[in-house]
Simulated assay, not measured.
Amino acid sequence: MQEWSKNKKKESKTICFVPTMGYLHQGHISLMEKGAPLCDELVLSIFVNPTQFGPNEDLDSYPSNIENDLSLAKKAGATAVFLPNKENIYPENYQTEIRLKYLPDHLCGKFRPVHFTGVATVVTKLFNIVMPDMAVFGQKDYQQLQIIRQLTLDLDFDIKIIAGDIIREKDGLAMSSRNAYLSKSQRASALSLWQSLNLAKELIAKGEKDSGKIKHKMETFFKTFSQTTPEYICFCDPQTLDHVDSIENQVLLALAVKIGKTRLIDNALIDPSR
């Protein structure tokens, strides 16, 4: 992969990179379609990174369909697909980690303590291997997006980070590879994430500024759905991810919810002046 990229650079070709863990859906495709027109080459990586999974998480059961992924990648305009295995990325005696100080202490990082160190480490390695000019990350993983932006800035990567929109099913559920875990009844309950975001938007539009009051109404709303337990509901500064008590400016509303054993995330940027 690195040799391929070096050769493209010698030909003065530009490279756009979309890193994924595979089991591609329309959300991933939208990232490739966003990146394809911006560079000469579009590289997709598929690697289920073990270091970003904690104990009792779904590493061993994470869905996979490489043949379908390759077909979708080709249709979306990918000119190369990087398919490393664990031994390629973390060879024997590997011992280096990339760790951020502050951004991982919020949202998902509170509940998945090893996750973002694993993400930052593997993305750093992938950037060094693929050597892209730009990379596209989805906004559904908003905290991850902010961490990658900070990582790129701090480590002086000459890479432009592009945000891809959240892609939703027709009924509003944010597309995720983990949606495949949901039963029919759980799939219906999973709509509570999108609906709760809309509930918050309506309350803010009516003039409610107290994030605690909005959060309480959202928690009450979630209780009306079976097998549904919020892990967190947070109103944050979109840049720092620090908690916001009074909603005066644009705010990130981020949430993680367990539907049965499946953990789903979603978010919305909300501007009270609009």
Rank of each mutant, 00 (worst) to 15 (best):
Q95A: 13
K184H: 10
K110P: 06
I214K: 01
K201D: 09
D40L: 03
I148W: 02
R274A: 15
K258R: 14
K13F: 10
K213A: 14
C234N: 12
T124K: 06
D133C: 09
K261A: 15
L252A: 11
C234P: 09
L31F: 00
Q239Y: 14
K215I: 11
S185V: 13
K261G: 11
K13R: 11
D245M: 12
L241W: 02
S5F: 04
R263Q: 10
I98G: 06
N198R: 13
D156R: 13
I270W: 07
K140H: 08
N249V: 10
M1P: 05
T14S: 11
F116G: 01
L197E: 00
I204F: 07
N93F: 09
E41T: 00
F137K: 06
L241E: 04
P19Y: 02
I66V: 13
M21W: 05
I148F: 10
V123Y: 05
W4M: 11
K217H: 09
H28N: 03
L173F: 02
A205S: 11
G77T: 05
L59Q: 10
A190S: 15
Y23S: 04
I270K: 01
K201V: 09
N128T: 04
F47P: 03
R187L: 11
E92R: 15
R263N: 09
E41C: 07
T224S: 14
I247G: 01
N179V: 00
L24H: 04
V257Q: 01
N68L: 13
L193S: 05
D69Y: 08
F222N: 02
S12R: 14
S211Q: 03
P230F: 06
C108Y: 04
G77N: 03
N267P: 07
P50I: 04
H216T: 13
L191E: 05
S226R: 12
N85D: 11
V114D: 12
A76L: 01
